[in-house]
Amino acid sequence: MNLSDKSNKDSVETIASTIFLILGVINIGFVLLICVYLIIAGLPAIVKIGPIDFLFGTKWASTAADPKFGILPFILTSIYGTAGAIIIGLPLGFFSAVYLAKIASKKVRYVVEPLIDLLAGIPSVVYGFIGMLVLVPSIRTLFGLPDGASLFAAIIVLAVMILPSIIKVSITALEAVPQEYELGSLALGANEIETYYRVIVPAAKSGIAAAVVLGVGRAIGEAMAVMMVAGNAANMPSLFESVRFLTTAVASEMSYSSGLQREALFSIALVLFVFIMMINATLNVLLKRGGVKRK
């Protein structure tokens, strides 16, 4: 056997690495394409309307005789809606994760985890539908409102929607914590609950932060379910008023829009895109920081 003949190994490796390179380039290409397209399509309207009027204008009346294109109501609605969903969904998801990862018996986990996966797999239109049929009327009667479709309804639906990913990611983070930490704490006479909250959770915190950012990303990008329960009036946000999110602002007018209105919708999409990029950047920083600290 000629050991110095590396030609066959080399050619396989070259082909493999070329395929991966091409796939990688295609991937990056798509991202760049979307980026460039959104900027090209979204910038003109911002320039025409004026960035200040566009981003900080409080009135959106795209089809009026004297059209107004202020998207502050959408931006704030998206931020409040997402924040609300996290405020409700994070504690719920986090405690469920601690329970499932650390306290629950194998049997309970065996039943509950597939249900969570199922919850994650339900299409958002189904969440919207149930929200519309059950949640919106309940909110109306409970709070004595003329209409239950509101920011509040959207927050509840979003909180439920982000729950599965928060639970799953938190469980993974908690289980990645070495068991020696737990034993070390118990051997000092700490009880189980103290051990979870003082040793295991802090050790898992970068993973849990990632769960939050993932939840934020999902909530801010959700359109369908939100459209069905938020009422969609372009009001400045208020908990029990009908509101419109960045996503739903694009989705609800796109089909019949034209001219500057259509361009402005692209600009809204661009703003949304920037938000999501910022969230991803935050996620990356959090994950890196988590990695560095364990060195």
Binding site: P178, E180, Y181, L183, G184, S185, A187, L188, G189, A190, E194, R198, V199, P202, A203, K293, R294
Partner: peptide, 25 residues
């Protein structure tokens, strides 16, 4: 008290490691 085969300090500062037990109690 117990000391394990593989050293298992908590992922926190030296001080907090030592103070962990007393704080617990």
């Amino acid at each position: 008290g117990m000391v394990f085969q593989k050293p298992n300090p908590f992922p926190m500062s030296v001080y907090d490691n030592i103070a962990y037990g007393p704080r617990t109690h």
